[in-house]
Design a protein around this nucleic acid. Sequence first.
RNA 1: GUGGUUGUAGCUCAGUUGGUUAGAGCACUGGAUUGUGGUUCCAGGGGUCGUGGGUUCAAAUCCCAUCAUCCACCCCA
Length: 454
Amino acid sequence: MAQKPSIPKGTRDFSPVEMARRNYIFDTVKEIFQRYGFQPIETPAMENLSTLMGKYGEEGDKLLFKILNSGDFISKVSEDELQERNSVRLTNKISEKGLRYDLTVPFARYVVQHRNEISFPFKRYQIQPVWRADRPQKGRYREFYQCDVDMIGSTSLLNELELVQIINDVFNQLNINTVVKINNRKILAGIAETIGEADRIIDITVAIDKLDKIGLEKVNQELLDKGVSQEAVDKLQPILQLSGSNAEKLDQIEAVIGGSTVGKKGVEEMRTLFAYLSGFELTTEVELDLTLARGLNYYTGAIFEVKAKDVQIGSICGGGRYDDLTGIFGMPDVSGVGISFGADRIYDVMTQLELFPDEAVASTKVLFVNFGEKEEAYCLPILARLRANKVNAEIYPEAAKMKKQMTWADRKQVAFVVMVGEEEIKQGKLTLKNMKSGDQQLVSPEELIKILSE
RNA sequence: GUGGUUGUAGCUCAGUUGGUUAGAGCACUGGAUUGUGGUUCCAGGGGUCGUGGGUUCAAAUCCCAUCAUCCACCCCA
């Protein structure tokens, strides 16, 4: 038992049933992405470490899976460097590739590399696995799929509107109750600026982010601990205690941070977006949430996060606007905005709420029971004709006991079974059994094809 | 990286204050039913009790270590 084979921590195998359900999610998402004019691309599982490093903050660098160089890489490392025992420095010497951490950064790399083939604004979607060397727990895996939609090369807030509509459509179709939380990095920057702690923006947002978890008092305490002045914390209070509709909240914020140019810009952007949104009937609730920070440090405008209402799990979708992601790769002034659906968490939510429709698991339509060589010879051509008519059909590969073959068909949820013995051959017919109702009938090959083709 | 939880049959779990041969349900195999599955009945196979050490006349049970697992924090899809 100890030597049973296993897979790495945080990874999973997927059975046929699980695959059918996962594909149901992927198909839904794809269909909606395409309806909004997005086109697919794919990028390699591994990227150069130079592309990946430094894009996700210090924490992110630690979570990157690195790939050892091929060949005798250790011989190229000097004795001094080995003695130093510095993992970071040594990594640079023995590894130059890593598994992708998300799809956004590889996308930025793709855009820069292919800029001359792309006509902007470029709208793409990408559904591929990503890897993070995180410690696994509920809803957190080391290998998981992201479904990204981004548009790059346009600053219009119409793009933000479309993303919210896509979120709405996807979760509506999958039947998941969600709430979309929206914030704007510029507002957060404005807050930091207003209270005179502009360079502390990260500490401040991280603290604010914890508001609904640890409460107002502890947030204030954390801010003071981080070195923010009492005066600044006092100034922050009205913002931490916002209430009312999204529009009212924006008014309250503006009253406090209106003096900041960035902050004012952020408020205006949000007003425009909510104005756009007010023109549509959305089933998903949309809420302005100032405590939404999101760790990734490349966001510069709107930030989004989607939570499932009926299940306790991390966010199932997130994203935002980044004004200069391609700048790091030498292509400045290109703004993009995008979101990422976490397919695995969506799967977990749907499993828990039992939202998968039965049709999500499709199987063989008809199985030919195998009685022996003569019967095989009679069945094979008919089987081929069924397949030519696009009917999913198969024959049991050996003349096993009938009971065994029937059990096998039942387990596989095959809809029909065809039985052919001496009697049927003599008459030139076949016995067709409906596995659900149990009904049987004697039919000719032509009738069989007609019935199953429907 | 920090804190905690749990490791017993393929799966989900019982197993009393340490005490004879470690149990159940589901799953599996065979039979009732030699051309009929999903229901029912009968029978059967399957366990180094995560691993290594220690205490004891005696350890699944107590102690230590180790590995694995899940959960929370951090962070995040």
